[in-house]
Amino acid sequence: MTRQQVLDLYFMDARSKLIDLAAFMDRVERASGEEDFRMKAFREALAQLEPARPDKAKQVLLAFSDPTTDPIAAATTKAACGAWPGSK
C-alpha cells in the first residue's frame, strides 16, 4: 500500500483513538488523588511514539512489560493489570 492508501484506510480510526487517549489523560489529571505505577508506565509508553523508528508498537508493549527473568514465588492473583508494578 502507498502511504496515501494507508492514510485513507486508517487515519480516521487513528484520529479517533488519539482523541480518546487525550481525553483519558485529561480525565486522570483532573481527578483527585495520586497516580499509580500504571500511569507512570503509560507516560513512558507514550514517549516511545516520538522517535522515528519502525517498531513503535513493540516499544510501547515493552514499556509496559515485566523485564525480569526469574519466575515469581507464587501467583497471588490470576489477573494482569496492564503494567509492571516494578516500575513503580
Binding site: 509496559f64 494482569a80 493489570c81
Partner: peptide, 13 residues
Amino acid sequence: TPHLEDKLKGTRL
C-alpha cells in the same frame, strides 16, 4: 502465553 505485562517474560520462560 500470559497477558499484558506478563507476556514478554512468560514467552521467554
